[in-house]
């Protein structure tokens, strides 16, 4: 079977701002593919183009074998989408929101009831099914949206920041269901996240930053590519510390989250050497095994949190763009 998603040099430009800068990748059927990156990296814009909600400025993409521009309806018949922002009708009950979805997304009538029961059970909202959504907490609304995205059993499921704001218990329930679903069906999943632990569920991850894909690989391979432990120290003079690390150890360190951060093999055994030879008082030190955050750091030079702090302007731009796109 051919690829579930094919993307070639896809771009989206808003005036002078290029939200997505010619990205290319393929996702195999049954694969769980993750987009990891800070807010404003272009993840949601890419998803919107793949879901036929936005027209690309350049490049092409196909989902389930159909072109996202020329064969929109064919694409829509085969996809499910859990949006980043709330898209429920708050004046309807949970049941009514799901029923609305079942009718619009062509769920066979005789199966509707049964499917409603199942997805409500999955997200633990069975007892609240007759309640107006306006009375729900943020987490309950999110769960209802995920239930709705799975209701019509799409072949390709897009999850845009699916579990933002959910408690760990609900997150694990949802992931457990998704994994069950994947075992039973050749469902392809495409998700965006900026939670490192969620990215670990993916078969492959694309790291996206400032509209470009920096690297694509499996979580294990990405972590292995970092290899080194991450050491963070705080000193009274960070500039001097960065200079000394360079001159005495040949290590290039960066400032990150108020500390000096660098990567080194065997971090724990390096710490005694550091204290002995740096020649500068160290106030605190922490050593961590590589995580996807380190992978992000390695490929972009920043942590996700730093990237988000420094891209405030980009986000603002992006929100403006999103408001216009609606």
């Amino acid at each position: 079977m051919s690829a579930a998603i094919v993307v070639e040099e896809l771009s989206k430009r808003y005036g002078d701002f290029e939200a997505v800068k010619g990205v290319s990748f393929e996702v195999a059927p049954g694969e769980t593919f993750g987009f990891l990156g800070p807010n404003g990296a272009g993840k949601s814009t890419t998803i919107s183009m793949l879901c036929t909600l936005l027209t690309p400025t350049a490049g092409r993409a196909s989902v389930a074998g159909f072109d996202v521009v020329r064969q929109r309806m064919e694409v829509r018949r085969r996809i499910g989408l859990v949006f980043q922002d709330m898209t429920l009708d708050e004046y309807l009950t949970a049941d009514e929101n799901l029923r609305f979805h079942a009718e619009l997304y062509g769920v066979p009538r005789d199966e509707t009831r049964q499917r409603l029961d199942r997805v409500l059970d999955m997200v633990g909202l069975t007892e609240r099914r007759k309640s107006i959504v306006r009375t729900f907490s943020g987490g309950m609304k999110r769960r209802l949206e995920i239930a709705r995205g799975l209701l019509h059993s799409p072949r390709v499921l897009f999850l845009d920041e699916p579990t933002v704001g959910l408690d760990p218990q609900t997150r694990s329930h949802i992931w457990a269901y998704i994994n069950e679903l994947k075992k039973a069906e050749a469902i392809t999943m495409f998700l965006t996240t900026h939670y490192m632990d969620e990215a670990e569920y993916c078969d492959r991850i694309a790291i996206m930053d400032q509209g470009e894909i920096v690297v694509i690989d499996t979580p294990a391979a990405l972590k292995a590519s970092v290899g080194e432990d991450r050491v963070q120290i705080s000193t009274d003079n960070d500039d001097a510390a960065i200079g000394l690390l360079e001159s005495r150890f040949g290590i290039s360190a960066v400032r990150s989250e108020g500390t000096v951060s660098f990567h080194v093999y065997g971090g724990e055994s390096f710490v005694p050497r550091l204290f002995a030879e740096l020649g500068l008082p160290i106030r605190s030190v922490s050593v961590a095994r590589p995580t996807l955050d380190d992978v992000f750091m390695k490929y972009t030079g920043r942590t996700i949190r730093d990237a988000e702090a420094s891209t405030t302007d980009l986000i603002r731009n992006n929100m403006w763009v999103r408001a216009r796109a609606r």
């Binding site: 018949r77 059993s153 069906e185």
Partner: peptide, 8 residues
């Protein structure tokens, strides 16, 4: 789980 289906 619900089996995959396509809207007709």
């Amino acid at each position: 789980v619900i089996s995959v289906s396509e809207a007709r």
